[in-house]
Simulated scan of single mutants.
Amino acid sequence: MIAKLRSQLPDAWQFFVAPALAALLPWKLGYRWLRWLSRHSRSAFDEPAQAAATQAPNYLPIADTAEFAANVRLNCLWDTADLYLSLLRPRHSRLPWHVQKIGDWPRDSHFIAAGFHHGHGHWVFKTLAQAGFDASLVSARWDRADYPGLPLRYYYGRLRGGDVERLSGRPVVFRPGAKAQLAQALEQGAAVVSVLDMPPRMAPRGQKPVRLLDQQASFPDGTLELAKAAGVPVVPYWMEFDLARGTRRFCIGQPLDPADPATLQILADILDRAIRLTPSAWFFWPEWPRWIEDAANTGSAAENTAAG
Results as ranks from 00 to 15, higher is better:
Ala3Val: 02
Lys4Asp: 15
Gln8Leu: 11
Phe16Trp: 14
Leu24Gln: 15
Pro26Ile: 00
Gly30Cys: 01
Trp33Ser: 06
Trp36Glu: 10
Leu37Arg: 11
Ser38Tyr: 07
His40Gly: 07
Pro48Lys: 04
Ala49Val: 01
Ala51Gly: 00
Ala52Tyr: 02
Thr54Asp: 12
Thr54Glu: 08
Asn58His: 11
Tyr59Asp: 00
Ala63Asp: 15
Ala63Gln: 13
Val72Gly: 04
Arg73Trp: 13
Arg73Cys: 09
Cys76Glu: 12
Asp79Arg: 13
Ala81Thr: 02
Asp82Gln: 08
Leu87Val: 14
Arg89Trp: 10
Arg91Leu: 07
Ser93Tyr: 10
His110Pro: 08
Gly119His: 02
Trp123Gln: 07
Val124Trp: 09
Ser139Thr: 02
Ala140Ile: 02
Trp142Asn: 05
Asp143Asn: 09
Arg144His: 06
Ala145Met: 00
Pro148Lys: 03
Tyr154Thr: 04
Tyr155Val: 06
Arg158Ile: 05
Arg158Pro: 01
Leu159Gln: 09
Gly169Arg: 11
Gly169His: 03
Phe174Asn: 13
Arg175Gln: 11
Lys179Thr: 14
Gln181Gly: 14
Gln188Asp: 14
Ala191Phe: 05
Pro200Leu: 12
Met202Leu: 13
Ala203Arg: 02
Arg205Val: 14
Gly206Ala: 12
Lys208Pro: 06
Lys208Asp: 07
Leu212Asp: 02
Gln215Gly: 04
Leu224Phe: 15
Glu225Pro: 04
Ala230Ile: 04
Gly231Trp: 10
Val232Lys: 04
Val232Phe: 05
Pro233Asn: 03
Val234Ala: 13
Val234Gly: 11
Val235His: 07
Glu240Pro: 03
Asp242Cys: 06
Leu243Glu: 14
Pro258Val: 13
Ile266Pro: 07
Leu267Arg: 09
Ala274Phe: 02
Leu277Val: 01
Thr278Lys: 08
Trp282Val: 00
Phe283Gln: 12
Trp288Gly: 03
Trp291Cys: 00
Asp294Ala: 13
Ala295Arg: 01
Asn297Val: 09
Ser300Ile: 08
Ala302Met: 10
Glu303Pro: 03
Ala306Tyr: 03
